[in-house]
Amino acid sequence: MINRIFGFTLLTLFAGMGLQAQKTFRIGYVDMEYILQNVPQYQEASSQLDARVLEWKSEVEEKKREIEKMKFRLDNERALLTRELIEEREEEIAYQEEQALDYQQKRFGPNGDYLLQKKQLVRPIQDQVFTAVREISENRNLDMVFDRTADTGMLYAAEEHDISDQVLRSINRAANRRQIESRQDRQELETAEGRTVEQDEKVAEREQENQDKQNEREAILAERQRQRDSIKAARQKELEERRARVIEARQRRMDSIRELRQQKDTIN
């Protein structure tokens, strides 16, 4: 969001410099962290996300504990097991470790659920901030507005230019207006009827573009999940087939020993 604000304002500034070389530039800034901390909707959703994160971390730790138990049992029983059984146990442990790592990446990786849901959580507030910043900047004749918590940062900022409280009040007022307007269907209808055909077409096009992008993202994620599931299923099948062969070979050896004993008893 700040990149859009910065790029738009910077272009406007440089364009104006050619026309108004003596203009005094006015700069404002917002504290995005401060705004987020004071938006109730964000705080409520953030608490819900934190609860899910605790559950995910607990599941990751449980998987790790189970793997450690498997390793401990193998170390204690290694001397009593055949080479085939040891290899089978080790392969199963390696498979479970891979499963645990995949789960951890799914939840906390670069494209994991945590970061995706965090972005989805912040995005609506960012859009509201951008709208409020643009309105306040026009009213106060500000030339630039920065987010002091963004990576771009600022070298200096005077407190008199901090419009965070005003942005927060603007967001709250907008939320209150939406609550009132939601009970006034007639006003909403009048607003919709006041749009021209061209405006309606543009709104529809934007909504369709957003939906197409969402569908494309969901299709990509679904295909990636399908491929991961296919690989995991193949590995699981291979492990089960190998385990079946080991059990079958063990049974043949036991049958052979039993037959030899029976023959010995018959001779005696």
Rank of each mutant, 00 (worst) to 15 (best):
D265K: 07
I220A: 08
R89Y: 06
F8L: 13
N3H: 13
A158P: 13
E193Y: 11
K69Y: 10
D200V: 02
K69E: 12
E218H: 04
E62T: 11
E240L: 01
Q208P: 09
R89P: 05
A21Q: 03
D162L: 12
V60H: 13
T266L: 05
Q117T: 04
E55S: 11
K119E: 10
A174C: 10
T152A: 12
V246A: 06
I247N: 06
I163D: 09
A222L: 05
Q214H: 07
G112I: 07
K64T: 06
I35P: 01
K202C: 00
L142F: 14
D255K: 01
R217W: 10
M17D: 06
K232Q: 09
Q208W: 10
R52Q: 15
E88D: 15
R4C: 00
V60W: 12
Q105K: 14
S170N: 14
K63R: 15
V122A: 06
M154H: 12
K232R: 12
D165L: 08
I125Q: 02
I35V: 04
R228H: 02
Q120E: 07
Y156N: 12
Q128Y: 00
K232Y: 08
K57S: 11
S47I: 07
R73M: 09
S46C: 03
E87T: 10
Q187W: 12
E248Q: 07
E181G: 07
L11Y: 12
E59T: 06
L260G: 02
M70K: 15
R195S: 03
E84P: 09
D200P: 03
H161D: 10
V145Q: 02
E33T: 03
K64A: 11
Q211Y: 13
S256N: 02
I257T: 01
L260V: 03
Q99C: 04
G7P: 01
K71L: 08
R243N: 02
E241Q: 05
Q227A: 08
A100I: 09
L155K: 13
V145S: 03
E68P: 07
G153W: 11
Q37H: 02
S256G: 05
N3L: 11
Q166T: 10
K237V: 03
S137E: 04
I67G: 12
G112K: 13
P124A: 04
I5E: 09
T12F: 05
E223W: 06
R183H: 12
Q37E: 01
M154A: 08
Q214A: 10
M144L: 14
T152K: 15
Q104S: 11
S137R: 02
D102G: 09
R107D: 00
I5C: 07
D151Y: 15
R252S: 01
M1V: 07
I180F: 06
K232H: 09
A219H: 04
R261S: 05
L142H: 10
L189Q: 15
R26P: 00
A100D: 13
E97N: 11
Q214G: 07
L36I: 02
K69S: 10
A204C: 09
R89I: 01
D102A: 13
W56A: 04
E159M: 13
R4E: 08
T196Q: 08
R26M: 02
D127I: 04
Q199M: 11
N176E: 14
I257K: 08
V30G: 02
V122K: 08
L116F: 10
D75N: 14
T82E: 08
A204D: 13
V167Q: 10
S137I: 01
E66C: 00
N210Y: 14
E98R: 15
K69M: 09
E201Q: 14
R173I: 06
R250L: 04
